[in-house]
């Protein structure tokens, strides 16, 4: 279980997160909704150790991971698909996938490589192409595949739908659902509330760095107007 407790983060004088608490049960798929600048990416970056918390805690299965370096956090089983995908432009598709297994160097990762490639036929065909030549959808698949190469316990995904055609978005989320069914705990950040409500079992809404609404999918489905109001601002 991934648990964030009373997390506050500031960039200089800007407070990006204020006393945020969220919980992701093992095997669950939780979504964080929020408008631009709500603090969604900051939350994921803090969990990953890229951004330091001002106060509060992050714990994985009861063990505090707050303040650890990102290298250590990914080694403990939290992989992060960053906003904008973060495909390495001068790496081939193969290298982009393999670098995801960096924390598992020394192990035989070829079975995982074949499994991940099998999940994404579109990128398998482009194994030798450089990262920057891929389309947005292919890059998103590659970014998810790369995170899976770390054999994570928890997958963090930041705005997978950004800039993708609706049909591609549905494919990407279907993949995420598949990943979750293999036992990986998933925490996604989304601006697209409809989409998130279809896949997540529990949701949070962030506004100006605070949690303003939370509940299981059913509750959210009944209060779409309220959600829209929060996301509209």
């Amino acid at each position: 279980m991934l648990e964030v407790k009373d997390l506050s983060v500031r960039y200089g004088s800007v407070e990006a997160l204020h006393d945020v608490s969220i919980k992701v049960e093992t095997g669950g798929l939780v979504a964080i909704l929020g408008a631009n600048g709500a603090g969604k990416s900051t939350l994921l970056r803090t969990i990953s150790g890229i951004v330091k918390a001002a106060s509060g805690n992050v714990a994985l299965d009861g063990t505090a991971i707050t303040g650890l370096r990102p290298e250590e956090i990914v080694r403990r089983g939290i992989a992060h698909v960053p906003e904008g995908r973060g495909i390495l432009p001068d790496f081939t598709v193969r290298e982009n996938l393999m670098i995801g297994a960096y924390v598992r160097r020394g192990q035989d990762v070829s079975p995982d490589y074949r499994r991940v490639m099998g999940m994404f036929p579109a990128i398998e065909r482009r194994e030798r192409k450089l990262g920057y030549t891929l389309s947005g959808g292919e890059q998103q698949m590659l970014a998810i595949g790369r995170a899976l190469m770390a054999a994570p316990q928890v997958l963090l995904a930041d705005e997978l739908s950004l800039g993708l055609a609706p049909i591609i978005v549905r494919q990407v989320f279907a993949t995420l659902d598949q990943v979750r069914r293999t036992g990986v705990t998933v925490l996604v950040v989304e601006q697209n509330a409809r989409l998130a409500m279809k896949f997540a079992d529990y949701l949070y809404v962030l506004k100006y760095g605070r949690v303003v609404m939370e509940g299981p999918r059913e509750t959210f489905a009944k209060s779409t107007d309220l959600v829209d109001a929060y996301l509209g601002a």
């Binding site: 890229i50 290298e71 973060g86 390495l88 790496f91 960096y102 924390v103 160097r105």
Partner: peptide
């Protein structure tokens, strides 16, 4: 080598390299 690959990753995008576990 893994170390060399990590270094090449770092040369392209430090944040992503760190997320992959590269120091």
């Amino acid at each position: 080598t893994w170390t060399g690959m990590g270094m090449r990753a770092a040369s392209q995008n430090q944040t992503v390299a760190r997320l992959m576990g590269v120091s």
